[in-house]
Amino acid sequence: MKIESQLKNVLAAGRFAVTAECGPPKGADPEAVIKKGRILKGYVDSVNVTDNQTGVVRLSSLAACVLLLQEGLDPVLQMVVRDRNRIALQSDLLGASTLGIRNVLCLSGDHQSFGNQTQAIGVFDLDSIQLIQTVRRMRDEGQIIGGEAVSPPPYLFIGAAANPFADPFFYRVIRLAKKVKAGTEFIQTQCIYNLDRFKEWMSQVRDRGLHEKVYILGGITPLKSAKMAEYIKNQVAGMDIPEPLIRRMKSVPAKGQRKEGIKISIETIQALKEMEGVHGVHIMAIEWEEAVPQVVEQAGLMPRPTV
């Protein structure tokens, strides 16, 4: 029996999908992954596993995906083009499929200068769009780059990221169109705090008919504190937190800020549910996995479908 992507099944059934994120530990520790998996199990359809995020060395995404798979979760293998050339990427795609992983998310990756290996060479042999195209050709045409056959081909549901909040704004939707043209089947967006801008982006997405060609999952990151909101605003490239939201977080005493963060997430999800062309949410509660069940439950997204 071929294992199927749960994410693909849920989306194909027209249900509002929920995915979350799991960052592997800085160590050879299976328990850390399994623990995170158990917190999320039953509350989400699939779990993304980050790939040495921000250029920090961690347990490999592929290994962590296998651990989650063994726990009965549907992992999404994140793959960045920063650390591997096309030989390694294509080889790992075959490896992932062989091990039963059914989803891949193709990313550029944060630049190595951000991490703990700042003297490393950045590979960037392919870019993220070329990686999408590569997976798609491998899967649908059974061909690796250059045209040689691979058999059997990898069996993967193909995803990519989109950032409606980066610049230049008018171009963001063109880039999404390129990702769709390259073969991506689902999109997970950057965290949405600026709903107005996201709405504007979605209307451009619909104008181009892209919402009918690709599943879009809106990114959600519950804020832990007003400090975190300010940090993101000032320090994290490509993220957009409007001032009123920061004020709202500040207006709550420190003890209640986590709760307020969750409340904001739930309100955002409710707005997304009403938006034409949004097919689900991707909840990235960084080192705060416990927040995911609360958000999912309180946003009325339970029970998760068994399709």
Partner: peptide
């Protein structure tokens, strides 16, 4: 481009500046 992207920009481009 710090990531030599042929199909850019990446998600880190903001206010015309490179994320790096």
């Amino acid at each position: 481009c710090a990531k030599q992207i042929f199909n850019g920009p990446c998600g880190g481009s903001q206010d015309g500046k490179c994320e790096v």
